[in-house]
Amino acid sequence: MRVMAGAIGAIALVTPSAIAACDGQGGISEETSSWRLVWSDEFDGDTIDAERWNREVDCWGGGNDERQCYTPFDQNSRVDDGCLVIEARLGEATGPAWPAHMREGMSEEQRAETNTQPFTSARLNTRGKGDWRYGRIEVRARLPEGQGTWPAIWMLPTDEYYGPWALSGEIDILEAVNLGERCRECRGRLENRMFGTLHFGGAWPENRYMNRNTTIPTGPDNEQQFNVFAIEWTEGEIEWFLNGESYGSLTPTNWRTDSELADGNPNAPFDKEFFLILNLAIGGNLAESLTLGGVRLEGYPKQFLIDWVRVYDCPQDLETARACAS
């Protein structure tokens, strides 16, 4: 990736007040739960653990007309005082026009194509380093605010067994856009909604989705706080949790895949291994279509702070994980 000269500038350090709550607290109690911790990152070191995370590099726009380049640079993703910091910065950058998984099947000329975006940010994934089928996934994080911000915690299939997106599915643990902005239909007239979503159906553009939603608790001045976002994914059901409380679930009566490989299998496509993704997008179709519209340029950099990530399996029922469901 080539960054335009002077576009990013110096690294903006996280203030002590911003990371004071990266204390490793919260989450389920292993003493009282039947779930077993099998993979985690507490971000207690000095650098992002390359044995756990891949840093993606592209200026594609996520297929949603987003406005960021994802970079491998510390100014966009780093570990600071117990927190993973994903930071979006205002500053033009140029890089690959397509993500790595799409470039693999392209001609040399297509792989060399570039795109320029007005923001930089980061997207980390665990593909090949953390891939799971069924379990409980928890992330304690504090979300950024502002028109055009789009933080997400989500999962994609490791091998796309049933075919390209969305034949093989997508699991969104958390999405929120434009938090803190004026919103007529929102509680307190400020945007405070979050969504847990499944994408399925046919290959784009024949894809479908269904979601569950709730509101995010905020502090006394309506500022964002750290919350625990989680799913329990068992055979035939995915359930979403906020701070330990369920706010909805979906089952095979709600989803499907049009792949012929799923004939007679109602659990498809959510019965194969998926990997985890953490990212902060700026703009895009969803964020720019809601609340004030577009992207507001004030207040950058924006930070998505992750205290920890924890993944659990169900030791007494590794095949379906149903025995551990809440």
Rank of each mutant, 00 (worst) to 15 (best):
G9F: 07
I11H: 05
L13E: 15
S17C: 02
I19M: 06
C22I: 12
D23G: 06
G24F: 08
G26A: 15
I28M: 04
E30M: 14
R36M: 15
V38S: 00
S40G: 05
S40H: 04
D41L: 04
E42M: 14
T47C: 12
I48V: 15
R52W: 02
N54V: 14
C59A: 15
W60R: 08
G62M: 11
E66F: 09
C69K: 01
C69N: 02
Y70N: 04
T71V: 13
P72T: 10
F73G: 08
Q75F: 12
D80V: 10
C83E: 03
C83W: 03
V85F: 00
I86L: 14
A88S: 14
A88G: 14
R89T: 06
R89E: 00
R89F: 09
R89S: 08
L90P: 00
A100Y: 13
S107H: 04
E113Y: 14
T116K: 09
Q117R: 15
P118Y: 15
T120E: 05
N125W: 05
K129L: 15
G130K: 02
R136N: 03
I137E: 04
L143Y: 11
L143K: 05
A152F: 07
W154F: 00
M155L: 11
L156A: 11
T158M: 02
Y161D: 12
W165R: 11
G169D: 06
E170Y: 02
L174T: 11
G180H: 01
E181A: 03
R184V: 09
R189K: 10
E191I: 06
R193S: 03
M194D: 07
L198I: 09
L198E: 14
H199D: 10
W204P: 04
E206C: 10
R208P: 07
N211K: 15
N213V: 05
I216G: 09
Q225V: 06
V228Q: 02
A230T: 02
W233M: 03
E237G: 03
I238E: 03
E239N: 12
W240L: 10
T251C: 15
T253E: 15
D258H: 08
S259D: 07
D263P: 02
D271K: 00
D271A: 00
L280W: 01
G283E: 09
N285F: 03
T291C: 06
T291I: 05
G293N: 11
L297Y: 01
E298C: 06
E298D: 13
G299T: 14
G299H: 13
I306R: 04
R310I: 13
Y312C: 00
A321H: 02
S326Y: 09
S326L: 07
